Computed example of a mutant assay.
Amino acid sequence: MQLLEIDKKRYRKHLNIVIGLCIVALVVGSLGIAQILIAIYPSAEGTHFHWNLFGVIVTVIAIGVVLKQYKAHPFMTEVVYVWELKKVLNVITRKMQKIQSEAEQGNVQALLALQFSYSGSRQLWTLDDNTILMDELAVEQAKLNALLEKFSLQLDLTKFDKIDLQDF
Rank of each mutant, 00 (worst) to 15 (best):
M1R: 01
M1Q: 04
M1K: 04
Q2F: 08
L3Q: 00
L3V: 00
L4T: 09
E5R: 12
I6K: 01
K8V: 04
K9D: 14
Y11Q: 01
R12L: 07
K13M: 12
N16P: 09
V18N: 13
I19M: 09
G20T: 03
L21M: 14
I23S: 11
I23A: 14
V24E: 08
A25G: 03
V27F: 09
G29K: 01
G29H: 01
S30M: 04
S30Y: 04
Q35L: 11
I36E: 11
I38G: 07
I40L: 10
I40M: 10
Y41E: 08
P42A: 02
P42M: 00
G46N: 00
G46C: 01
H48K: 06
H48I: 07
H50C: 08
H50L: 13
W51T: 10
W51K: 08
L53G: 09
F54P: 05
G55A: 03
T59K: 02
T59I: 01
T59Y: 05
V60S: 07
I61S: 09
I63T: 03
K68W: 11
Q69L: 11
Q69A: 12
H73N: 14
H73S: 10
H73Y: 06
H73G: 06
P74T: 01
M76Y: 03
M76E: 03
V80Q: 04
W83V: 07
W83Y: 12
E84Y: 05
K86R: 12
K87F: 10
V88R: 06
L89H: 11
N90L: 12
V91E: 15
V91P: 07
I92M: 00
T93H: 14
R94H: 15
M96D: 12
Q97D: 14
K98Y: 10
K98N: 13
I99T: 04
Q100G: 11
Q100F: 06
E102A: 15
A103N: 08
A103V: 07
V108C: 07
Q109P: 04
L111P: 02
L112P: 00
A113H: 03
A113N: 00
A113P: 02
L114G: 01
Q115R: 15
Y118S: 02
S121D: 05
R122Q: 14
L124A: 09
W125E: 10
W125V: 05
L127D: 00
L127P: 00
D128Y: 09
D128K: 12
D129Q: 10
I132Q: 12
L133N: 13
E136F: 05
L137C: 03
E140Y: 13
E140S: 15
Q141M: 08
A142E: 14
N145M: 06
N145C: 06
L147Y: 03
L147F: 03
L148M: 02
L148N: 01
E149S: 11
K150I: 05
S152H: 14
D156H: 06
L157W: 04
D164S: 11
D164G: 06
D164L: 09
Q166V: 11
F168K: 05
F168H: 03
